[in-house]
């Protein structure tokens, strides 16, 4: 692999990571978010793989499958189990690029009369498989994502200056993923969306770790992965409890404890 190919591949992986992340904040259908998360995990796993091949580092090559299994399969699977099936067949990109009408209905809150009987986005919201009206409109979210990406590039200047390689040049993308994950956490109301946002954030951090230092020491990497797994399990259990206690998973409703 030439260094140019290496850089291209790395940038591609980083770009894919970022793209999936933007998708996560764009989409309101939780099933789609989870699938994007899986793709994101795969893109993340590609980084140590590419890097391991190029730098000929065995431990990176060894860790890449672990990352792939955990982040592209196990975690998305666990999360997808938290999402109740949608009222309509899962339609990927096309189905969720739905006409504006149902969205408008969702905007208007609980639909009344005949529309209530018709399964739709509002019912999905109630069931917890679709993000309700976002706290910040989608376009503003996307603009903010763009701003955060710029911020990430600005923040990474000292890192690139210290060690100008293809790896560090990809770091801004990872940092932007982190920021956008935080943004998703801040604006998403469904429990699952928050978890997805959190995992996005975490993926970004891991990506950054691979890009900057070829991963953290093994014991830390294993410990961090275990922690992550446990957190997701805890959150999954909590979501179940929440559904039992509140009849829904809208985090925005959790405002009993204040001051």
């Amino acid at each position: 692999m030439t260094s140019e190919t290496y850089a291209n591949l790395l940038h591609f992986a980083g770009g894919l990571l970022l793209l999936c992340t933007v998708g996560v904040v764009w989409r309101h259908q939780l099933g789609a978010s989870v699938r994007l998360l899986a793709v994101q995990g795969a893109a993340l796993a590609a980084i140590p793989l590419i890097s391991g091949i190029y730098h000929e580092k065995a431990h990176l090559l060894a860790i890449a499958p672990v990352v792939l299994v955990l982040r592209a399969a196990v975690l998305p699977y666990l999360i997808s189990r938290m999402v109740p099936p949608t009222a309509r067949p899962p339609g990927g990109w096309t189905a969720s690029a739905a006409p504006a009408t149902p969205a408008a209905q969702a905007d208007a809150g609980a639909p009344d009369g005949p529309t209530a009987t018709r399964p739709g986005p509002a019912a999905d919201v109630l069931a917890g498989s679709r993000e309700p009206v976002p706290l910040i409109s989608t376009s503003v979210t996307l603009l903010l994502s763009a701003a955060l990406t710029v911020l990430a590039y600005a923040l990474c200047r000292p890192i690139i200056a210290l060690d100008p390689t293809a790896d560090t040049r990809t770091a801004p993308a990872a940092l932007a993923v982190i920021f956008i994950g935080l943004l998703a956490l801040t604006t998403r109301r469904q429990a699952v969306s928050q978890v997805v946002g959190f995992l996005t954030l975490d993926n970004g951090i891991v990506a950054l770790a691979f890009l900057l230092t070829s991963g953290v020491p093994l014991v830390v990497e294993l410990g961090a992965s275990l922690d992550l797994l446990l957190v997701v399990l805890v959150v999954a259990a909590l979501t179940n409890r929440m559904r039992a206690a509140f009849g829904g998973t809208d985090i925005g409703e959790l405002q009993e404890l204040k001051e």
């Binding site: 429990a191 959190f198 950054l208 770790a209 900057l212 230092t213 953290v216 985090i251």
Partner: peptide
Amino acid sequence: WKYVIICSVGIALAFLGTVVLY
């Protein structure tokens, strides 16, 4: 829920900081 999410996010930042420090 608030505890887990907020602390995990915060502590994730610490991990990020650890990575950068590393």
